[in-house]
């Protein structure tokens, strides 16, 4: 059984991650990842294999850092005008595995606005969080889009 305090701390962590993305604080967003942390957005529903099956994003800190630099760099064409997002995180279920890592399953909605065009991304995500001080760092984040596998619009700011 997860105590309420832990649950609140995990939720706060997820909300803070969403806030940093929405505020355009992308470097601070990347600071939430461990040095070996991995971000995985599969291309198929129920995908288990990131090597033999294509992924929308399967990146570690070093590659995510390129992504972040690109977001902050004025020359990224697809980012002019700069998109803005609102990330909603809800239905949070927290559990603990044997290694003391926190698993947080949640549902998300990401509304992105760019140049007068609004896009909606939705689905479920699973964070594996390692304790760090009085908070956490992301060891692994898996994002499952509800429309994975179909023709998708371009995605610029991460979920």
């Amino acid at each position: 059984m997860i105590d309420l305090e832990t649950r609140a701390r995990v939720q706060d962590f997820l909300f803070e991650e969403a806030r940093r993305l929405d505020a355009g604080e992308f470097e601070a967003w990347l600071d939430l990842y461990e040095e070996d942390g991995i971000y995985w957005m599969p291309s198929q529903r129920g995908q288990t294999d990131p090597l033999n099956v294509a992924s929308i994003i399967y990146e570690d800190h070093a590659i995510l850092s390129i992504r972040v630099q690109r977001l902050l760099e004025a020359r990224a064409l697809v980012l002019t005008p700069m998109p803005y997002t609102t990330h909603l995180v809800t239905n949070v279920v927290v559990s603990m595995d044997e290694d003391g890592l926190v698993k947080a399953a949640s549902a998300f909605l990401c509304i992105s606005m760019q140049g007068g065009e609004q896009k909606i991304f939705a689905g479920r995500q699973t964070h594996t969080l390692a304790p760090a001080g009085d908070s956490y760092l992301i060891r692994h984040k898996r994002v499952d889009l509800v429309n994975a596998g179909s023709a998708l619009p371009l995605m610029t700011i991460p979920i």
């Binding site: 929308i56 994003i57 064409l77 697809v78 998708l152 371009l154 995605m155 610029t156």
Partner: peptide
Amino acid sequence: STLASPASMIFSDDV
């Protein structure tokens, strides 16, 4: 994935 995913850092700029 790197070239052609919807989150690609290459093809998105082409598109």
